[in-house]
Amino acid sequence: MKVSLFTTCLGELFYVDVLKDTTEVLERLGCEVDVPEGQICCGQPSYNSGYKKESIGPAKHMIETFENADYIVSPSGSCTSMFREYPKIFADEPEWAERAKRIAEKTYEFTSFIVNVLGVEDVGAEFHARVTLHTSCHMTRLLGERDSHYRLLSHVKGLELVKLPNNYDCCGFGGTFSVKMTPISEQMVDEKIRHIEETKAEVLVGADASCLMNIGGRMRRLGKPVKVMHIAQILNSHQEEEAAHHANESRKSTVL
């Protein structure tokens, strides 16, 4: 199965490890991965801030770049949901709306793709830790993907999954919201961290790097010992030593 990886700008800028793990997991599951060279940002930051005109160029460019892909897969619920929004952006340009629709239909979030398209729940990973999961807003409410990540984690050997209280509440990222409404955003992330601590988890896992950057960045500032990992990193872990190494490595190399 041919998969074109939609890397996301946050991924390329901060989380190269996550992209590597995403690639390797997909390849291990038999996918032929390619990385379309022309890809850039999906335009979500400007679109959500009200700058629609400024978002149309990036959106058209992304449509052209990914048009020939069989499947488009991204390790981010949020960026995936932006691709799914594209048809709405082009309400006034029917031809582009049609092209946008075709893109939207073949775009999948990473965990959703593994479970719903590849039909795999056990990727053969092993990771020994007490883990809690942050289910992001765009993943659950905009994409309607509510359980792929749970299913995948439930098959990871050695992993103890603890439910995060109030998991439905936003972590306070919200793109430009985090810098425009900083005081409110900080209250939201602090409550999220209180809930994470209640679970006594060693690792917080999520499938959206943006939320993890927010929660992880705040935890790091507050000196909290909880490790923050992207689900691709967990799914690409094979044995205890390597997993521990993996977690430490990413902890050091990024705020994740």
Binding site: T7, E12, Y15, V16, S178, G217, V255
Partner: peptide, 24 residues
Amino acid sequence: KPWTHGRDLPAPSKENFREWFKKH
């Protein structure tokens, strides 16, 4: 600035993903 008021920002990854991918 507003971000780092209460949060740390990750350092950009030193490795370039596209270069890694070509090698890979």
